[in-house]
Design a protein around this nucleic acid. Structure first.
Lengths: 242, 242
DNA sequence: AAATAATAAATAATCGATATTATGACAGAG
DNA sequence: CTCTGTCATAATATCGATTATTTATTATTT
């Protein structure tokens, strides 16, 4: 029996020298994802092919294919015969994402802890360590590129936490929801950030998880999410731009 | 002038009836989904563009785009620079689907019952009624087209059950998993079917749900799924492509 | 003879151009 | 003054052909 690895589109900008040249479609997909998640392409914005063609210096085919790939991830909307646009945001969807995410990640985290795999523990610790020693480079720095490295490590940490649950499907769903959630965080970045000690929260989650204290780990994780959620909810504005 | 629009029943998430003509991409997507779910395109089979181009009498672009759309639903796998193939099956994945699906649908069903929306109840009753009076037309009939109508109604019934949960995200995930699961059912169709009274199981689920008895409804639903799962597990053969 | 390199065939990915469709302005009727 | 239908414009969706890459085959070398 071979463990079939399901397709993972979430390439975190890893350029491997030895194997495989990236197709233009893959490039376009990564670039578009990046720009949507970072907010460079705002919610609801119409994605005209020619415009994107010029922006990324690519042909129309790879662009279209990349947009198609992103639609099922909920980042792009496909209006039949009317082109593509960045998926719009709404308070309703945000609450749905938050709720579903908390619930799914709780399950995944509990399963991971229950499995108690030592390799999993190692990955969690390592991911935490990398994250903790990387400055966020957030609003005060203003540099998106520095911040994007932090973003990657942050995601890696959270994915490592749930990575031992044994369900590829659950992991993939959480991955999708993580990405969809990021956009909402970007919407009110300056407001919510400085007030909390996020690193301490991460540490609490990590330690409880490694200790095998599922209840504490889950509580810390949920608090981590809902707290962010609360901030965002306050400073959310429905920018349904056409 | 010769716009022959083959109106295909779109099992996908959002489809507005009465609206303009379908794009070729949408047609291709529906046709491919149908053929993959029905098993006409077996698991792991390589999906060569030219081959599909001839099969559906379409250009390469719509085909590629349709395949890209199906990728994120887990029905098609995209090997960078090496084309597409039907997602392979495995016992591991089957168990993952079954487990995750039971767990997610339990949640969705409980939420739907808790919400207690009367419009939701109506939809459930209606869906059940339609399903119950439609013959399965399964292995003995051998007619796939008749059976595909039953398939559509069966899915509609199960989606109606969880449709009142209030979470679009959860509904979509369940939808995806339902489709992914169908393929496994097709793999061992003759063996598992005749032994049970599936209609009675549906009735039990429906009645408990309408009565507001969440525990009973969930128990019946889970039994419904795991029973099928057990049969399949027995007659499963790992036809791994590579 | 086995392993490696070179070549040929097949197929995927991409581009440029065309046909189709939606969008928005405008004129004319009610 | 509002509504309705028509037409010009912009954008999408699609096709046919070209280019790049992988896979299979054959030839060459140790």
């Amino acid at each position: 029996m071979d463990a079939v690895d399901t397709n993972v589109l979430n390439t975190s900008a890893l350029a491997e020298p030895g194997r495989g040249p990236e197709s233009r479609t893959t490039q376009a997909c990564a670039a578009l994802r990046q720009d949507i998640l970072s907010g460079a392409l705002g919610a609801g914005v119409k994605l005209k092919i020619d415009q994107l063609r010029e922006r990324y210096d690519l042909g129309a085919s790879p662009i279209r294919e990349a947009l198609s790939l992103l639609t099922s991830d909920g980042l792009v909307e496909r209006l039949d015969q009317r082109g593509f646009r960045v998926a719009p945001v709404s308070g309703l969807e945000f609450r749905d994402i938050l709720k579903t995410r908390c619930w799914m990640e709780e399950r995944a985290l509990r399963d991971s802890i229950a499995a108690g795999d030592s390799a999993w523990q190692d990955r969690v610790v390592l991911a935490y360590y990398r994250l903790s020693r990387t400055p966020r480079g957030g609003p005060e720095a203003g540099d998106l590129s520095g911040s994007s490295e932090w973003e990657a490590l942050h995601k890696a940490f959270h994915m490592a936490l749930i990575g031992g649950c044994g369900s590829d499907i659950l992991i993939r769903f959480c991955d999708q929801l993580y990405d969809r959630n990021i956009r909402y965080r970007q919407l009110s970045r300056p407001a919510a950030l400085p007030k909390r000690d996020i690193e301490a929260e991460h540490k609490a989650i990590m330690e409880a998880a490694i200790d095998g204290d599922a209840d504490a780990a889950v509580a810390a994780l949920i608090a981590h999410y809902t707290r962010t959620g609360g901030y965002l909810e306050g400073s959310m504005l429905d920018t349904a731009g056409t």
